[in-house]
């Protein structure tokens, strides 16, 4: 049962108030009609399933009804940060590699998932779980 920091309500709330909505940063192609069937199929159906750092979209369904993103370690279930829609994550896969030297960590490939973070940015992670 996760304890999730809602970046809009600005406090930790119980998981039961939220709906998970899958991988974050899946942008709809600007010109769908210009997409090949394969490209459109990728957008619709293909998602990453990394062991390690994953950026996920969640909805504070029983609360402010806002969508937001979570950076979560799928091994430890630790939530490393939560951030508002339109913002970018500050924690990426190499954070875990550096912090825990875990050889088997994978990174999600699509979107902005692997964007790195400076130590300063890591230190100011909002909503990091104790």
């Amino acid at each position: 049962m996760f304890h999730i920091y809602c970046p809009y309500c600005e406090e930790l709330r119980e998981e039961e108030e939220f709906h998970p909505k899958g991988q974050a940063h899946i942008a709809r192609p600007e010109e769908p009609d210009a997409c090949s069937d394969e490209e459109w199929g990728d957008y619709l159906f293909f998602r990453d399933n990394p062991r390690g750092i994953h950026h996920e979209m969640w909805l504070h369904a029983v609360g402010c009804r806002k969508f937001f993103n979570i950076t979560r370690n799928t091994v430890s279930y630790e939530i490393l940060e939560t951030y508002r829609m339109g913002e970018q994550p500050t924690v990426g896969a190499e954070h875990l590699a550096r912090e825990e030297k875990t050889a088997s960590v994978q990174a999600a490939e699509g979107g902005q998932q692997t964007v790195g973070a400076s130590d300063a940015a890591l230190a100011s992670v909002k909503g990091a779980q104790a």
């Binding site: 309500c9 709330r13 119980e14 039961e16 108030e17 029983v62 609360g63 402010c64």
Partner: peptide, 10 residues
Amino acid sequence: GVTTLFAKTN
């Protein structure tokens, strides 16, 4: 004041 769960409703 918050919006939250109450039993199985909001």
